[in-house]
Protein backbone atom coordinates (compact mmCIF):
# COMPACT_ATOMS: atom_id res chain seq x y z
CA UNK A 1 0.00 0.00 0.00
CA UNK A 2 2.71 2.43 0.94
CA UNK A 3 4.63 1.47 -2.17
CA UNK A 4 1.57 2.05 -4.26
CA UNK A 5 0.97 5.39 -2.69
CA UNK A 6 4.62 6.31 -3.22
CA UNK A 7 4.23 5.57 -6.90
CA UNK A 8 1.00 7.55 -7.15
CA UNK A 9 2.51 10.50 -5.32
CA UNK A 10 5.60 10.35 -7.49
CA UNK A 11 3.41 10.30 -10.58
CA UNK A 12 1.52 13.30 -9.28
CA UNK A 13 4.74 15.20 -8.73
CA UNK A 14 5.90 14.27 -12.21
CA UNK A 15 2.58 15.44 -13.60
CA UNK A 16 2.93 18.73 -11.72
CA UNK A 17 6.35 19.32 -13.23
CA UNK A 18 5.28 18.15 -16.67
CA UNK A 19 2.28 20.47 -16.73
CA UNK A 20 4.54 23.29 -15.61
CA UNK A 21 6.98 22.60 -18.41
CA UNK A 22 4.14 22.35 -20.91
CA UNK A 23 2.62 25.64 -19.75
CA UNK A 24 5.96 27.37 -19.83
CA UNK A 25 7.09 26.12 -23.20
CA UNK A 26 3.84 26.39 -25.10
CA UNK A 27 2.55 29.48 -23.33
CA UNK A 28 5.65 31.63 -23.47
CA UNK A 29 4.90 34.80 -25.36
CA UNK A 30 7.21 36.31 -27.96
CA UNK A 31 7.10 39.66 -29.60
CA UNK A 32 6.81 40.07 -33.34
CA UNK A 33 7.59 43.53 -34.66
CA UNK A 34 5.58 44.05 -37.83
CA UNK A 35 7.22 46.74 -39.98
CA UNK A 36 5.14 48.57 -42.53
CA UNK A 37 7.84 50.10 -44.67
CA UNK A 38 6.61 49.13 -48.09
CA UNK A 39 7.26 52.07 -50.35
CA UNK A 40 5.39 50.38 -53.18
CA UNK A 41 2.06 50.50 -51.45
CA UNK A 42 1.27 53.67 -49.62
CA UNK A 43 -1.14 53.52 -46.67
CA UNK A 44 -1.76 51.78 -43.42
CA UNK A 45 -2.23 48.06 -43.05
CA UNK A 46 -4.12 46.03 -40.53
CA UNK A 47 -2.48 42.92 -39.11
CA UNK A 48 -3.93 40.01 -37.19
CA UNK A 49 -1.83 37.12 -35.92
CA UNK A 50 -3.35 33.82 -34.78
CA UNK A 51 -6.86 35.23 -34.97
CA UNK A 52 -6.23 37.90 -32.36
CA UNK A 53 -7.75 41.36 -32.51
CA UNK A 54 -6.43 43.11 -35.66
CA UNK A 55 -3.96 45.93 -35.11
CA UNK A 56 -3.42 48.89 -37.43
CA UNK A 57 0.12 49.72 -38.54
CA UNK A 58 0.63 53.11 -40.14
CA UNK A 59 2.91 53.60 -43.10
CA UNK A 60 6.55 53.76 -42.12
CA UNK A 61 5.79 52.59 -38.63
CA UNK A 62 5.83 49.29 -36.83
CA UNK A 63 3.91 47.57 -34.10
CA UNK A 64 4.78 44.86 -31.63
CA UNK A 65 2.40 41.92 -31.36
CA UNK A 66 2.69 39.17 -28.78
CA UNK A 67 2.45 35.61 -30.04
CA UNK A 68 2.14 32.51 -27.92
CA UNK A 69 4.91 29.95 -28.28
CA UNK A 70 7.47 29.36 -31.00
CA UNK A 71 6.53 27.35 -34.02
CA UNK A 72 4.13 28.19 -36.76
CA UNK A 73 1.82 31.20 -36.68
CA UNK A 74 -0.83 32.47 -39.06
CA UNK A 75 -0.69 36.08 -40.12
CA UNK A 76 -3.44 37.97 -41.87
CA UNK A 77 -2.64 41.31 -43.51
CA UNK A 78 -5.48 43.54 -44.57
CA UNK A 79 -5.04 46.54 -46.74
CA UNK A 80 -7.62 48.82 -48.16
CA UNK A 81 -8.30 48.27 -51.82
CA UNK A 82 -6.42 45.00 -51.94
CA UNK A 83 -7.30 41.40 -51.18
CA UNK A 84 -6.42 40.12 -47.70
CA UNK A 85 -3.13 38.30 -47.48
CA UNK A 86 -2.94 35.19 -45.37
CA UNK A 87 0.33 33.51 -44.73
CA UNK A 88 2.25 31.41 -42.23
CA UNK A 89 5.59 31.98 -40.62
CA UNK A 90 7.76 30.23 -38.08
CA UNK A 91 9.13 32.07 -35.12
CA UNK A 92 12.91 31.82 -35.05
CA UNK A 93 13.82 29.47 -32.19
CA UNK A 94 16.12 30.58 -29.37
CA UNK A 95 15.12 34.22 -29.61
CA UNK A 96 12.66 36.30 -27.62
CA UNK A 97 11.70 38.82 -30.27
CA UNK A 98 11.71 39.03 -34.02
CA UNK A 99 10.92 41.44 -36.78
CA UNK A 100 8.68 40.79 -39.76
CA UNK A 101 8.88 43.18 -42.65
CA UNK A 102 5.65 43.41 -44.59
CA UNK A 103 7.55 44.76 -47.55
CA UNK A 104 9.47 41.52 -47.86
CA UNK A 105 6.37 39.43 -48.26
CA UNK A 106 5.92 38.01 -51.74
CA UNK A 107 3.03 35.68 -52.46
CA UNK A 108 4.20 32.09 -52.60
CA UNK A 109 7.57 32.64 -50.98
CA UNK A 110 8.37 32.08 -47.35
CA UNK A 111 7.86 34.92 -44.91
CA UNK A 112 11.17 36.14 -43.59
CA UNK A 113 11.39 36.69 -39.87
CA UNK A 114 14.63 37.95 -38.37
CA UNK A 115 15.56 37.78 -34.69
CA UNK A 116 16.03 41.12 -32.96
CA UNK A 117 16.93 42.38 -29.54
CA UNK A 118 13.67 43.41 -27.85
CA UNK A 119 15.39 46.03 -25.71
CA UNK A 120 16.48 48.11 -28.65
CA UNK A 121 13.23 47.85 -30.53
CA UNK A 122 10.73 48.26 -27.78
CA UNK A 123 8.97 51.62 -27.64
Amino acid sequence: MTKRSMIVRGALLALYIAVGIWAYSTGKGYKIFVDNTDPAVAGAITVAIDGATPVKVRLGGYTGIMVKGTGSHRIKIMREGAPDFIGEFRFPPESTAAALAVSGIRPGSEIVVTPVDPETRDR
Binding site: Y16, W22, A23, Y24, G27, G29, M66, K68
Partner: peptide, 14 residues
Protein backbone atom coordinates in the same frame (compact mmCIF):
# COMPACT_ATOMS: atom_id res chain seq x y z
CA UNK B 1 7.53 35.59 -17.70
CA UNK B 2 5.24 36.33 -20.60
CA UNK B 3 3.27 33.10 -20.37
CA UNK B 4 0.12 33.66 -22.36
CA UNK B 5 -3.38 32.32 -22.58
CA UNK B 6 -4.57 29.29 -20.66
CA UNK B 7 -0.99 28.20 -20.20
CA UNK B 8 -0.35 31.41 -18.32
CA UNK B 9 -3.24 30.60 -15.99
CA UNK B 10 -2.01 27.04 -15.48
CA UNK B 11 1.45 28.38 -14.77
CA UNK B 12 0.08 30.91 -12.29
CA UNK B 13 -1.94 28.17 -10.56
CA UNK B 14 1.04 25.86 -10.32
Amino acid sequence: NNIMGVQGLVYASL
